[in-house]
Nucleic acid binder design. Structure first.
Lengths: 375, 375
DNA sequence: TACTGACTTGAATCGTAAC
DNA sequence: GGTTACGATTCAAGTCAGT
């Protein structure tokens, strides 16, 4: 059996590359396969601008049977390289996710959760013909009903401010500076996923040093996040342009300097923001040093949204209380960060306020949000 | 062909009952089928206990294959009784929804949306082994890619405080007084759905007087809500105890006294008014100059109800599109006229509203007043 | 510098009555 | 049944120019 080479992109057909890798050598597979969209003609917005739909060659299939064969092929190859203790994630929409789920189950994979990525800023339905398609679905599977697997329950609970992480995740689309652009300033890849999504996926189901494989690497989001979180990674991608862009992107990523920070603790009226969300959304990098206003105590940020100080570990509130020897502490106002190019310390509550502003800015499109706005 | 009898529960096997009903007679089907592997004896072979199976792979395959057959059976029967313009809803979880979705698509149903029911109060995952399973999935399908169907867009938008209704719905579980109890105070049915969920389903996809059928009626939620919303209804249920409980429950429901309160009028359904009628009726004199809201473009009204601008001639829509160089244009809202004794520009749509108010007799008073103000 | 407003964009299965 | 023409339809974020 050959040894596995990690931290590299293989250019080529994913089944062929997978078949060339040693069996049972990968801990987590994250797959974002073509969705088999079946778009009609062009679609115009009410302002007559054209919607840039996905019409790439890689998303053309003859029909469901063709797509099922394709799915069976790459899932079978994935199963071989996956350790018995490994897990598999697949993301998709209603166009393909039922096909994928059925094939998965037929191949013996065991669904642990279906997770809903609830988009905070989806594209509307311009013609008023259906419900706004505002989510995508991730399937998370083990290799069988009896298989052991990695689930960092405490990390997920901490990331959700002490409440169990649910099967629905509200996260924004990948836009702004995070979105890779080509020389002409157009989006490089039509379906680039947000890093916050992969942050949660990888943190939940792997440990530092584990191997994360992506058979449809695309713009390289999964590998970039895996590298930052001190996991080993393997990407497979057919398109040379995507490979080149992903290589450059991943190259620029710095791993969190201490892997321990990447492994694995409420207010009422206002929407509660877990501190983990601040980290996940990239407003504060794991490893960042926080201190209190006087600079007497300090602690470092971990990827799951907990803090670690010289003697204590836990939520921003727990560590804040512990270092002071106090019974309780509001970590949001106790802990401060240093502003770039400035010596002043500002409370991390500013970051929470920024996220709250986003949430309440225009409503989330659900009546629940409307209810909150009334309070 | 026999005529359809509505507003009643049929006790029996759902496929047999469905096969006894006339074809193409139902507008909406809502189905809450068994969630796989916990089915009655007729679906699992007696010697194939899932837990103690001799061969896991074989057992699992048999389990899914049987479930797929079961699904194919009732969905085929549903397709026959459903009108071509009808739609089908199925609710499920990750245990069965991929099987259902695949069978649906293979039978030619066309998925319009997958809707996520996000539970505001889900049961936690007590063992901390997975994400809290906090949602269920509904599939909404038409009978084919070209089929027309009912979607009350405006009603859904109104229900969501003026924003398009999204594909994720946050609603609480059925608890409290709404939950049916037996004599001993235990819950009568293990999976009773909340009425709020059915309210949204039925309001979205049917009109007063339409026939709503539920092949797995259970505690009768769908029929109860259908009756309240002035729809006709049909329920099919095998278990005599559930039938009795559902009959009593539905009997106690009072329909909304005015069916008009259970429908939101569609803009598309309003009577079409040719622009020529506006001229013909003297609401706008030939030769009148119209302009867009900004005053950038202008055109003159001809006696035949067409417009003529410097370079273009045709309908209000055609000239509006042509002057802008746009692919399409709604002339009613694009073109404006000057109000006498005032410098403000108002859209000519006001004139159409005035004619429509005349046609419907009383009108709302609002549009009539608006029309009078123009004189 | 901060704010405003116009413009752009995102995995999209996106119309239908009348002739 | 095919063709024509009406005329209905968008939310959250990010970017950028102008004040």
């Amino acid at each position: 059996m050959s040894s596995l080479k990690t931290d590299r992109i293989y250019q080529g057909n994913c089944v062929e590359v997978l078949d060339s890798l040693p069996a049972a050598s990968v801990d987590v597979i994250f797959a974002d396969p073509p969705y088999n969209l079946q778009l009609g003609g062009e679609l115009l917005r009410p302002n007559n601008s054209r919607v840039d739909g996905v019409d790439d060659d890689w998303d053309r299939f003859q029909g469901f049977a063709d797509y099922d064969d394709f799915t069976k092929g790459w899932l079978t190859a994935c199963r071989r390289v996956l350790k018995d203790t490994g897990t598999l994630w697949v993301i998709g929409s209603y166009h393909n996710i039922f096909r994928v789920g059925t094939v998965l189950q037929d191949l013996g994979f065991w669904v642990l959760n279906d997770v809903v990525w609830r988009k905070t800023n989806p594209m509307p339905n311009f013609r008023g013909t259906r419900f706004t398609n505002a989510h995508e679905t991730l399937l998370w599977c083990s290799t069988g009903p009896e298989a052991r697997y990695t689930f960092n329950y405490e990390a997920m609970k901490a990331l959700n401010d002490g409440l169990q992480m649910r099967s629905d995740w509200s996260l924004p689309l990948c836009t702004g500076p995070e979105r890779l652009k080509d020389e002409a300033g157009r989006k490089l890849h039509p379906t680039q996923k947000p890093e916050s999504l992969l942050h949660r996926v990888i943190l939940a189901s792997s440990n530092p040093g584990d191997v994360v494989l992506d058979p449809f690497l695309g713009s390289g989001t999964s590998a970039a996040v895996a590298k930052r979180l001190c996991r080993r990674w393997i990407g497979i991608e057919q398109d040379p342009d995507y490979v080149a862009a992903a290589r450059a992107r991943i190259q620029a990523v710095r791993s969190v300097d201490d892997p321990a920070l990447c492994a694995t603790p409420r207010k009422r009226a206002e929407p509660r923001i877990p501190f983990g969300t601040v980290v996940e959304r990239g407003l504060l990098a794991p490893g960042t040093v926080l201190s209190d206003a006087s600079g007497r105590w300090s602690a470092r940020v971990r990827a799951d949204g907990t803090l670690i100080s010289a003697d204590h570990r836990g939520s921003i509130h727990q560590v804040g209380a512990a270092v002071q020897g106090a019974p309780a502490c509001n970590g949001w106002t106790f802990w401060h960060m240093r502003v770039e190019g400035d010596q002043t310390l500002v409370p991390i509550d500013l970051l929470r306020q920024r996220l709250r502003a986003e949430m309440t800015g225009g409503g989330t499109g659900e009546s629940e949000a409307a209810g909150e706005a009334l309070q």
